[in-house]
Amino acid sequence: MQLKIKYFGLLAEVTNCQEEYVNSSLSTVKDLLDMLHKKYPELKDKDFQIAQNNTIVALENKLKNTEIALLPPFSGG
């Protein structure tokens, strides 16, 4: 299946892109996170939540053929 992954805030600086398409046979959000940690080791030091199809989800959630977003907290004001 093909996943569209969007990176917000400083995560886009880590991955050097705002969004990308990934072909995968991964089954859960956790699998996807492990894959991204391998691809971008710097992500391991970052805090963020993962949204699937515009809903924040837990790591156990099954991956669907939808849009993923990685959302870090912002502190600025």
């Binding site: 805030g9 400083l10 030091d45 970052k46 805090d47 870090p72 907290p73 912002f74 502190s75 600025g76 004001g77």
Partner: peptide, 10 residues
């Protein structure tokens, strides 16, 4: 709260 150095401010 996130790791102190992971999110810089303005």
């Amino acid at each position: 709260p996130p790791k102190e150095s992971s999110i810089p401010n303005c």
